[in-house]
Nucleic acid binder design. Sequence first.
DNA 1: CTCTTTGCAAAACATTTGCATGCCT
DNA 2: AGGCATGCAAATGTTTTGCAAAGAG
Lengths: 140, 140
Amino acid sequence: MEITDALDLLKEKGYKYTGKREKMVRLFSEKRRYLSAKEVLLDMQEEYPNLSFDTIYRNLTLFEELGLLETTEFKGEKQYRFSCGSTHHHHHLICTKCRKTISFEMCPMNVIFGSPKDFMITGHKFEIYGYCSDCMEAGV
Amino acid sequence: MEITDALDLLKEKGYKYTGKREKMVRLFSEKRRYLSAKEVLLDMQEEYPNLSFDTIYRNLTLFEELGLLETTEFKGEKQYRFSCGSTHHHHHLICTKCRKTISFEMCPMNVIFGSPKDFMITGHKFEIYGYCSDCMEAGV
DNA sequence: CTCTTTGCAAAACATTTGCATGCCT
DNA sequence: AGGCATGCAAATGTTTTGCAAAGAG
């Protein structure tokens, strides 16, 4: 996913590409890792000091609905990251310190399961947690 | 995990086996599925009408620390279930309607990965979501 | 009798909503 | 101009904490 894709998606659906939305998109595009609503707010407030949580949440929710952002849940907080692009299903290694992610394509569902007859599968979650090389070196 | 194991664990660590704790343990032992704090409270209040959330949370936290309960996170709520017993690592199929779980021993970590050099793995989460046979029939 | 457990009340924290105003197209 | 976006304030929902009273070993 690139910034221009995000812009197109918003336009296409009739949403406005405001300065705040642009900055939010740029933030996610630069960081490429999971961010909490609070982190987004703090970063945004450098440019928009009056910005408040409701706008952040409204836009995070909108972006998620549009498929711009992928989400997961982490220590009781929802976490958002720029979508890797929906071309193929994938999973992540997630650094629990800096929340950087590394994608990988292997999916256990393909490898292992047939479909159990007594359970209708609708989804799954597979995430690997640990420390990325930077955070390892920093001495966790 | 059986009720008597829970009792032993509490005694062993010097915690008291109060009527409320006993009922909580029995509840989890009977249900054998994920329950939210609210569900636990509602069930408990049939016997203890004045019981409040703080006691529930304190005991849920204690039980989790003791390894009596396994937890996961689900729609912004923490969910607790009676531990399957720590004899071997396992994962769950989770019915998203009734939160019943079905254990399975296959772990994708064993099957697929060596250890990537640039990431120190400390944990993982693998859960499969869907509808159990009961909820399928009930016509979700 | 002592230390743990509980109830009460209040607070902390993440998230959501109503409403009036402001801004993009 | 018209509809979407935002700020403000207040509410919601989950979970935590301090303190004093009650209960278990």
